[in-house]
Design a protein around this nucleic acid. Sequence first.
DNA 1: TGATATAGACCGACCGGTCTACTCACTCTC
DNA 2: GAGAGTGAGTAGACCGGTCGGTCTATATCA
Lengths: 176, 176
Amino acid sequence: MLLRQGYHDLGIAAVLEATGIPKGSFYHHFANKEDFGLQVIDLYMTQVHAGLDHCLVDESRTPLDRVRRFFELTEEKYRGEGYLGCLLGGLGQELSGVSEAFRSKVEWCFCEIARRIANCLEEAVGLGDLAAGTDTRAMADLLVNCWEGAALRTRLRRDPAPLRQMLDFYFRGAAA
Amino acid sequence: MLLRQGYHDLGIAAVLEATGIPKGSFYHHFANKEDFGLQVIDLYMTQVHAGLDHCLVDESRTPLDRVRRFFELTEEKYRGEGYLGCLLGGLGQELSGVSEAFRSKVEWCFCEIARRIANCLEEAVGLGDLAAGTDTRAMADLLVNCWEGAALRTRLRRDPAPLRQMLDFYFRGAAA
DNA sequence: TGATATAGACCGACCGGTCTACTCACTCTC
DNA sequence: GAGAGTGAGTAGACCGGTCGGTCTATATCA
């Protein structure tokens, strides 16, 4: 619901009705709406980290293929949600101008994802799949950022093509 | 105000107070809040098209340099706003899941921008700066999408570096 | 029995939007 | 050319509905 409607358009009452949970229970477990939103991000990030754990240590693929595989699996996840893009991108875009708590949290999430991808890219440098001296951290940030842009366009079109085109371009350019 | 706060967090009353306009005047000129938001996008797009007009026909630069120049000028505009990213990206992300009017409008805006950039890339193909047979429309969409992703990160960090890194990577990859 | 959690009625604030009264430049008419 | 009439635009009080959040009463455990 947060992904589809965004933060401000989603009322607590709608969440309660959809889940059948009474208001008292909600406010027993969450301090307020902001706390709820931040915990949803935490939950989302455990899924992301599980995906990274699954992909980035897969010795049967090259490091670059592992990274690409992660985003291809993410695209499949988007498909199951009707191509509504990325929750981090959505909440980050909507709230980063108005809530320091969300701004710093989402930025931290992107940093964490990029950090783990950069580690994998470092392996690729070690194997010679990436040029020696490559700034792997910058390359990882670039990938995450461009992915988020493609995810926004995917949300606008309800179509995964922007995601695939972005990955094709990135990995062609990275190899060169 | 729409760029900073987003659509749902921005109340009509705040706009009226900031501009000193009474409510009666507002609702005389705008049918409702949605109409207001859509007209703000129209105004934003006239600025974007003015920027494209200015850059993309500059015969003193190569076609690729013209495209790059447009985005560099856009970055400067972002700086003047405190690096809050792109209004189209912001409203598109927040509203495309909940309002078909905004979804289709923002998607149409991106298509228009990409169409004009693709025309310029076509010139680059003619000059041999881009490989013959390049899908210029796909390349233009890719550029717009990745730019939006970089703009989101810029908004999160209040820092233009993601924009520049994205442009560097794109034009290095496009030339290859 | 005390801590934890459930349950939902209730609250004040604020939201987008409507309504009526009014101003004022301009036009039509006798 | 004076005066009534007209319609665009101004002004803000007001409205029903919804929002996030609180409160008290109750159920369910260890």
